[in-house]
Computed example of a mutant assay.
Amino acid sequence: MEITAVSGPSFFLRSIYLSHVKIEEITEGASFADECEEDIVNAGLCFAAEQKALDYLNRSEQYRKGLTSKLMAKGFDKFSIEKALDYLEGKKYLDDRRFARIWLNNRRITHAEGRLKLMNELAARGIKKEFIKEALDEFFEENSEEEICMRAYRKCMKTKKTQEKTIAYLLKNGFALKLITETGKLYATEK
């Protein structure tokens, strides 16, 4: 709905963002003051935050925490952001589960990392633990962690890293020591 103030610019709002004013009360020539006026302005701010969030979502998949930071940097208030992102999540335009799956598949292209590192990277982005677990379980059903570890191990050997540096590198990249040891033995039999 488009709202035009007598002495100000016009703006849009979505009725779900209204807390006090009923949509049928907003008619041509209607006047609002105090709490009702504030409610309409807040609904307009929520709609503006929603539109900016959609701009970001149209460019690439986003996650809630990152999108919140981007919107705050653009000057939107926390209340408007929360309401807008709740709406977008309800419409499935914003989905941290989907983001986690897509992020893992994109990350796999240029990085050879184990479960622990990937889990920590997603947690740092504010993705919920249950979403991380689901995404990682799905990811490692389709991608063998052993093969990823071997890829990283071969990279270390190609760059002539010592065994100690290789192990440290692979541990830092989230592989379990047992997997690293097994990969080292398997690599030795390939030679």
Rank of each mutant, 00 (worst) to 15 (best):
I3T: 08
P9K: 04
F12S: 13
S15A: 15
Y17N: 13
L18G: 12
V21Q: 07
E24M: 13
E25G: 11
S31D: 14
F32V: 05
A33E: 12
E38D: 13
I40G: 09
N42C: 10
F47D: 12
F47S: 15
A49Y: 06
Q51V: 14
Q51E: 14
L54Q: 05
D55R: 02
D55M: 09
R64A: 15
K65Y: 12
M72Q: 14
G75T: 07
G90H: 08
K91T: 13
D96I: 11
R97T: 12
R98E: 09
R101Y: 05
L104K: 03
R107K: 12
R108C: 11
M119C: 10
E121K: 06
L122D: 03
A123H: 02
I127R: 03
K133Q: 02
S144M: 04
E145H: 06
I148A: 02
I148Y: 00
I148W: 00
R151D: 10
R154F: 01
M157F: 06
K158L: 10
K158H: 04
K161P: 13
K161E: 08
K161L: 13
E164G: 07
Y169V: 01
L170K: 00
F175G: 04
I180C: 01
I180M: 00
I180T: 00
T183K: 01
K185I: 01
A188K: 07
K191A: 01
